[in-house]
């Protein structure tokens, strides 16, 4: 394992950070939750963030937090899907294919919700009025997010990005054959 400063990774993969914050914002918009501030990208920690009104509906709160996981994964996969085969299987890729792979990996690797997102869910569902079913779903989600956050130290986020951008297209082809 080798060490690369976080801000370098953030800088290189900035499209993923922007899509991540945009995904939070879109989910807030769908649920009509007021958004007070959005920082789509900055050279700092966190690289991006969003302030919104506390969400009374706990399920909506969880969805706003995990929204980027859905959006970044789908967009990352869609962008890299046509380029993965020319790059990794047929070796016929042009510059645009490499751009697509870069974008796909960058976006997909920022799919994991951050620890801030996990904290938001935690604060929301620990309240007494939270329905049991939301807690049943919410606590494992929080656990997974923390695990993902821990795993990012071991490049889990990058591995996920590569898995989505490269592994998924090959899996689809394998299943369709």
């Amino acid at each position: 394992m080798f060490f690369i400063p976080g801000f370098v990774i953030t800088l290189v993969t900035f499209p993923g950070v922007i899509v991540h914050e945009l995904a939070h914002q879109l989910f807030c918009y769908f649920f009509k939750v007021p958004v007070f501030r959005v920082v789509y990208f900055q050279l700092g920690n966190p690289a991006g963030y969003m302030l919104h009104e506390p969400v009374k509906n706990k399920a909506q709160g969880i969805l706003i937090s995990v929204g980027p996981f859905i959006v970044n994964t789908v967009i990352g996969a869609l962008i890299s899907l046509p380029a993965a085969l020319p790059v990794f299987t047929f070796h016929t890729a042009g510059p645009l294919d490499y751009v697509l792979i870069y974008l796909g990996v960058s976006i997909a690797m920022h799919a994991f919700p951050s620890r801030g997102d996990a904290d938001a869910i935690w604060h929301s569902i620990k309240e007494e009025d939270t329905p049991t079913w939301v807690k049943v779903i919410g606590y494992p989600v929080i656990g997974l997010i923390y695990l993902g956050s821990l795993g990012s130290f071991f490049w889990l986020d990058l591995l996920y990005g590569i898995g989505v951008a490269v592994g998924l297209p090959n899996l689809i082809i394998y299943l369709l054959r």
Binding site: P15, I79, L81, L85, T89, L100, P169, I172, I173, Y174
Partner: peptide, 24 residues
């Protein structure tokens, strides 16, 4: 990103079709 995605989707069938032939 949307333009790139549209381009991706446009080239997707050819890429998928080739991949399927190879896998088959």
């Amino acid at each position: 990103i949307a333009v790139i995605m549209l381009f991706s989707l446009f080239t997707l069938p050819r890429s998928i079709s080739l991949g399927i032939h190879l896998e088959k």
